[in-house]
Amino acid sequence: MTATASASPRAAAAPWRFRQPSALPGFGLTFGFAVTWLSLIVLIPLAALVMRASGLGLDGIWRITSSPRVLAALQTSFGLSLAAAAVNAVFGLLVAWVLTRYEFPGRRLLDAVVDLPFALPTAVAGIALAAIYAPNGWIGGLVAPLGIQIAFTPLGIFIALVFVGLPFVVRTVQPVLADFDREIEEASATLGATRRQTIVRVVLPALLPAVLTGFALAFGRAVGEYGSVIFIAGNLPFKSEIAPLLIVIQLEEFNYAGATAIATVMLAISFLLLLAINLLQAFSRRRFGHV
């Protein structure tokens, strides 16, 4: 890192330097500290995981993750996370629309409530959801006579994942919708489009990047979710066992290789998702000038 934090910006003909000249002090200190701390807390630990996994070799990782039980767990995690994120995309869009476009009593309360899944500890959410959806719970008891069981089935996992991913789409769409120029809608209507046509052909396409970003964030969160799911999941191999739980089970069975391999696969996927989100946002910024 550059130690010449106060280099004179006047040295116009200076050779290439790491940092663009600036009058502000403290770059070396803050940058150095941030990078060091980042390395210590995040990068080195994650590198340890990758190192462990590299000891297994690619085919070792493949052999472990392609075993039927691991595949089933990954399938459960990804399938249900996709479904939950999709539901959140639809309802998140709706909630964002209602919150930005309409005035009604309790709107601010509703707005605040959206963030609850983010602030509520996952274990608390887990036992609360289990209490509600168990066969003798408030809602579980209602649907039990119909032969529907929610808690301890994939449906229960799905509900927990909808809960944890709920804020993401709302919060990504909201600012975009608030900035959306309504004159475009008026123009569309003036040109003879019905309200439905305007929404489908004009408004939604503009919101799409934000919805996709929110979808990806909700999906990423759901794939890794553990605390709220284990209380309501049933944890049955091949049926209601999620990948993070399988990591824990592998650990508890002294199977470090298994835990490491699954964890590495999940880490790779979260990194790809993060990349996708960044690309989406970059695209959206170029195209629409906002996130």
Partner: peptide
Amino acid sequence: LIDLPFSVSPVV
């Protein structure tokens, strides 16, 4: 990289 811990599963 700063955002990375957000997307890593807590178990990992």
